[in-house]
């Protein structure tokens, strides 16, 4: 089933997009527009930990999460409130998009809901025009990253996509991870077993 879902998704992502996923190097001047894809519960906790050490150059931070997600907004607001004490000029926004995939949803119906989610994530990504996208595996990050790749393909805005696989993935990648392994600029894993299985990935030890 998983293979079928991947096959259904791949036509969306045509080969030119993969070519676009080439890394862009060179110096950059701060600030940098950061788009963060949050996801209920553990995903948001983890991504806020990752953000906790970033300098004030990463501003504004645009958060996107699924509309069915109850807890992320509270967590993000409390994180940003604390951050504002340290960096008074700190800026952030919050946006919701339809959930791309519920836990336990079948792979094939996930494709349909992901496409539906694209209707919202594409205009939103266009509006935000992020320099950098940071995500860690909620289904919502797939339509957002596909949107960003499309904007890059159209020459509108090329964003660097950094994917950090959740700490709870020790031996296998999440479905989002399996897709974004091919389309992210940097793919970070947190356990050595995954680094061995996925050579393109980056292993920095446990970072959350």
């Amino acid at each position: 089933m998983e293979a079928v879902a991947l096959l259904l998704l791949l036509p969306l992502l045509l080969v030119p997009l993969a070519l676009l996923a080439r890394r862009r190097r060179g110096r950059r001047t701060p600030p940098l527009r950061l788009l963060v894809v949050a996801g209920s519960g553990g995903h948001t906790t983890e991504i806020l930990r990752l953000l906790s050490c970033l300098s004030e150059s990463y501003s504004p931070r645009h958060y996107i999460f699924a509309d069915s997600d109850k807890m992320s907004e509270v967590q993000i607001r409390s994180f940003e409130q604390k951050r504002a004490e340290k960096f008074p000029n700190s800026q952030f926004t919050l946006d919701r998009i339809p959930r791309s995939r519920e836990v336990r949803q079948s792979w094939t119906s996930s494709v349909v809901t992901t496409l539906y989610s694209m209707l919202y994530s594409l205009p939103l990504t266009y509006k935000l025009k992020p320099d950098l996208i940071l995500c860690n595996g909620p289904g919502t990050c797939v339509p957002v990253c596909i949107s960003a790749l499309l904007l890059g393909l159209l020459g509108i805005k090329r964003a660097t996509i950094v994917y950090v696989e959740s700490i709870c993935r020790v031996e296998t990648l999440s479905l989002s991870g399996k897709i974004l392994y091919y389309f992210s600029d940097y793919f970070i894993v947190q356990w050595p077993d995954l680094k061995e299985k996925y050579p393109k990935s980056v292993f920095l030890g446990r970072i959350v």
Binding site: G26, C53, S55, I167, L204, G205, R206
Partner: peptide
Amino acid sequence: PGQPEKFALFLDKVVGF
């Protein structure tokens, strides 16, 4: 504890800061 500071260093490097 995990080390998010390592992630921050990595990111600074790859975005060119």
